[in-house]
Every structure is written in structure tokens, then in C-alpha cells.
């Protein structure tokens, strides 16, 4: 094993890989089980975008808040939300993170700083301004990160939030996960400008680009933005170009994609493969070590599915509980 050329120590690299692999395994498994009809409702899978969530979340702790999207499983896992609770939630079980009341699109764990996946595109942006404001009043150095896709980047509330964060100088990072498709509509059809990064200038905040398939690119760029925000430097906009391996939602035939697009991306732009190649070629981590993690993650996911399937459903008598605090 040679010297570590990366900005993360070996333990951190193993943690990052485990995070990315857990997300991938979680999503691949949902893809299969959803097709079997085991899962109610609908799910939006994050597979292919793992390097973004992981590259960012490696900088955060529980005092930092994130506001996620409808495609939120990856954000949840990397922010530390319990995988068993998440799987049970997606199965609509009483043991779920939200007692089965939220489902895939509304997994949250405030104790971990995870303010919720969100079924409304762009809705996390105003919320994260509030998280940033709270951190500022507390003076605890906490930051807020909100995610949105290239589609939601055109929502008024996202743009208004960038302005608010700028005028209040909030410790907030706006992260655009640009996977090229707003649902089924291409990014180029729905957005007139070439780069989302340019929008930062419109609000007087830095706009930065990162290759979202490269954990290290994301990690380094966002690290600077987070450090700046923690020190009172204010908000920033980060655009990460990513690949969405699956459709908008499960069951999406993806006929709007080019022939062979998914196959090409899986072969050449898979963030997990890219990560593995970099760390093994540098001689910092061996394939065997990563394979061992793969095995542990597979067991974790298998166990989470088994326990989710076995878990009790919510009781009908609890239909009305938790609407309000006291009545």
C-alpha cells in the first residue's frame, strides 16, 4: 500500500465507499422488489448519483441540516438515517422511519439533521433557508444543504430562496443535481441557459460546477463552499452533473432516452466504478477490502428487506394520530 494521495484518510474512504454502495444496493433492490409488486405507491431511485450525496455528506454532522427531494433515499442514507427504518417506511410499516405515514417521498429524521425527502419539487430550498437562519441564530457553525434537480431549478421558490439566502447571508448551499432529465423532459428543453452555475451571479452568490460522477470532485468543491459558509461567507450554488441509471420513477419505460444510453453510462460513468478504480489504482485500498464491504452491504440490505416484510402494519386506530400535537 502506498501513500494516500486523496483528501480523505483511508477510514474515510472506506466509509464513503460503504455509503455509496449502501445507496446503490438499496436502490437496486427496490428496483427488483418494486417490479415484483411488493412495494406500494411509487419510488424514485437515486442509483447513479451516489457520489454527490456522499461527497457532500462526508463533510457534515448531525448539527448540519439537509432538505432533500422526491429522489431522496441517497441523501437519507448518507445523512445517517437508519436503513432498516427507511426500508420499513417504503413498505408502509409501523417500524418505518416515519411509522409508515410518509413513504418513500417523505422519509425524514430530524435528529440526524434530515429535514425530509419532499414530494414538491424545489420545496426544500425555502426550508433550508430556515435551517440556515436557525444555525445563524444559534451561532453553532451549522450549515444547510438543499438538493434539487435540473427540473426544480426552474421553480420560483428555488430562485427566491437563493435571493433570500444571499440577502440574509445564510450558511446554505444550493445543490443542483443535474441528471439531464426533468422527469421525462430533457434539461435542454426546460432550461434556456447552458449552465445552472451562471444563475449564482444573478443572486450575487458563487456558482460552482462539479462532475457528479466523481466523489473526489464533489468532495473537494463542496468542502470549500461548506467551509466558507460555516465561517460566515454566505450561500453558494453547486451544480453536479450526474447520471440517473433508472427512470424518473419505477415503471418508467424510459423511451425518451437514447438507445444504449443506460448501458453506456453504467459501463463508463458509474461513480462507484470510478471510485473503486481510483482508490485501488492508487494502492490505498485493495479490491478485497471493497469486496468485503460489498458483502456486508448486501447482507444489510437483505436483512432490511426481510425485517421490513415481517414488520407490523400501522393500526387503523392510529389513522388520526399525530395530525396535531394535542388533539
Amino acid at each position: 500500500m502506498s501513500d494516500n494521495p486523496f483528501p480523505v484518510d483511508k477510514a474515510g474512504l472506506l466509509e464513503a465507499y460503504r455509503m455509496m454502495k449502501t445507496i446503490r444496493e438499496f436502490e437496486e433492490r427496490l428496483h427488483i422488489d418494486f417490479a415484483k409488486g411488493d412495494i406500494p405507491g411509487f419510488v424514485h431511485l437515486y442509483a447513479g448519483e451516489e457520489a454527490v450525496a456522499t461527497g457532500i455528506m462526508m463533510h457534515l454532522n448531525d448539527r448540519d441540516r439537509i432538505a432533500s427531494t422526491h429522489r431522496g433515499h441517497g441523501h437519507c442514507i448518507s445523512k445517517g438515517v437508519d436503513v432498516h427504518g427507511m426500508m420499513a417506511e417504503i413498505y408502509g410499516k409501523e417500524t418505518g422511519s416515519c411509522l409508515g405515514r410518509g413513504g418513500s417521498m417523505h422519509i425524514a429524521d430530524l435528529s440526524k439533521g434530515m429535514m425530509g425527502a419532499n414530494g414538491i419539487l424545489g420545496a426544500g430550498a425555502p426550508l433550508i433557508c430556515g435551517a440556515g437562519l436557525a444555525a445563524k441564530f444559534r451561532g453553532d457553525g451549522g450549515v444547510g444543504i438543499t438538493f434539487f434537480g435540473d427540473g426544480a431549478a426552474n421553480q420560483g421558490m428555488v430562485l427566491e430562496s437563493m435571493n433570500l439566502a444571499a440577502v440574509w447571508n445564510l450558511p446554505v448551499i444550493f445543490v443542483c443535481e443535474n441528471n439531464g432529465y426533468a422527469e421525462a423532459t430533457s434539461r435542454d428543453y426546460g432550461t434556456a441557459v447552458k449552465s445552472y452555475v451562471d444563475r449564482g451571479a444573478g443572486f450575487g452568490i458563487p456558482g460552482v460546477h462539479a462532475d457528479g460522477t466523481d466523489f473526489f470532485a464533489v468532495y473537494e468543491v463542496v468542502g470549500e463552499l461548506i467551509k466558507r459558509a460555516r465561517e460566515g461567507g454566505g450561500p453558494a450554488l453547486l451544480e453536479c452533473e450526474v447520471i440517473r441509471f433508472f427512470g424518473h420513477f419505477e415503471g418508467d419505460a424510459q423511451t425518451y432516452k437514447a438507445k444504449g444510453e443506460n448501458e453506456y453510462n453504467r459501463a463508463n460513468r458509474d461513480c462507484l466504478k470510478i471510485f473503486r478504480a481510483k482508490v485501488t489504482e492508487a494502492g490505498v485500498i485493495s479490491d478485497a477490502e471493497l469486496d468485503a464491504i460489498d458483502g456486508e452491504v448486501a447482507e444489510l440490505i437483505e436483512d432490511s428487506v426481510a425485517s421490513a416484510k415481517a414488520a407490523p402494519l400501522p393500526s387503523p386506530k392510529d389513522l388520526m394520530s399525530n395530525v396535531y400535537v394535542s388533539y
Binding site: 422511519s97 416515519c98 411509522l99 409508515g100 405515514r101 417523505h106 425524514a108 430530524l110 425530509g116 399525530n322
Partner: peptide, 9 residues
């Protein structure tokens, strides 16, 4: 939030 997050928010 309160309902959707299982009473934890």
C-alpha cells in the same frame, strides 16, 4: 410535517 414524519417533527 408532524403527521408525514410519524410524529417526530
Amino acid at each position: 410535517f408532524r403527521y408525514m414524519f410519524g410524529g417526530k417533527a
